[in-house]
């Protein structure tokens, strides 16, 4: 049971655009909210109003500071949830068979009825995408909102993961990454989407879109800030005497607009 399927019908997953994510945590909280009342045990919180509040979350948003060679330091917000890996080590280690990858769409799930809460799958996941529920003692992870995406009780347009639906900037995309003609696959191709920790050999399905170049003046222009726009080309010639020059030009300019 814990063997991985040879192939899956589809490869459903998320694509996260690091160029657009503002780190607002909306995806993380909406995920928590949807899943705490959803299938399976709630995502419990312990010491919720106390000294060491801690809870189970399926999606967490990190922030990194990146110092480029040239130019000022940059900030990248980085949401992370289960990547629904093709070669998911979390599945094969599971002794009870509770962890599995769906043949139909590749979603990696935990069957809470059979999980014994040993935690080995969380150890096996390189990404820190599995969390033990502190009260129910079962392993929790992103379900790719499997209880939404096919849910006949929801209107068609709402059959997307809760985090995708909530994300205010539209930095999260959902779809079939196994189908090269899907919108989401095209987006990945276009923007150079990449795997996290490819060296771990897990073949993640979820993809990250890199931040686009920032502070172009620093990198493109070799760190010097010479204007790419030539004001002299845009403007009328001016004389050395500023006020006179500008006000002199003014008459001609007014004539022109009539």
């Amino acid at each position: 049971m814990t063997t991985l399927p040879e192939t899956t019908g589809r490869k459903l997953g998320l694509v996260i655009d690091l160029d657009t994510c503002v780190g607002c945590h909306a995806c993380a909280v909406s995920c928590k909210e949807w899943n705490t009342g959803g299938t399976g045990a709630p995502l419990a919180d312990t010491d919720a109003y106390g000294a060491d509040p801690s809870g189970a979350w399926l999606n967490r948003v990190h922030t990194y500071e990146v110092q480029p060679q040239n130019g000022p330091a940059q900030m990248v917000h980085f949401p992370k949830s289960c990547l629904h890996c093709e070669d998911a080590p979390c599945v094969t280690v599971c002794p009870t068979g509770a962890s599995y990858k769906r043949v139909e769409d590749g979603i990696v799930l935990v069957n809470e009825d059979t999980c014994m809460g040993c935690g080995l799958c969380a150890w096996a996941c390189p990404y820190g995408a599995r969390e033990m529920d502190p009260v129910a003692g079962v392993m929790k992870k992103c379900t790719l909102c499997v209880d939404r995406i096919y849910n006949q009780n929801l209107p068609e347009e709402d059959r997307v993961p809760a985090c995708v639906r909530a994300c205010p900037t539209g930095a999260r995309h959902f779809g079939d990454l196994g189908d090269p003609s899907s919108d989401i696959s095209k987006l990945v191709a276009e923007r150079g989407g990449y795997d996290l920790m490819p060296e771990q050999g897990t073949k993640p399905v979820n993809q990250y879109l890199p931040p686009r170049q920032r502070d172009a003046w620093a990198s493109e222009l070799g760190g010097c800030d010479s204007a790419p726009f030539n004001l002299a080309d845009l403007a009328e010639p001016e004389t050395a005497d500023n006020a006179g020059g500008f006000l002199g030009w003014l008459d001609k300019a007014l004539e022109r607009i009539g």
């Binding site: 801690s54 809870g55 922030t63 990194y64 110092q67 940059q74 890199p210």
Partner: peptide
């Protein structure tokens, strides 16, 4: 995956609270 941009450093963890 941000190495292409420069030196990467964790700035803020997702939660100030602890976690599993």
């Amino acid at each position: 995956g941000l190495g292409f941009m420069g030196r990467v450093r964790s700035f803020e963890a997702p939660h100030t609270g602890s976690n599993y």
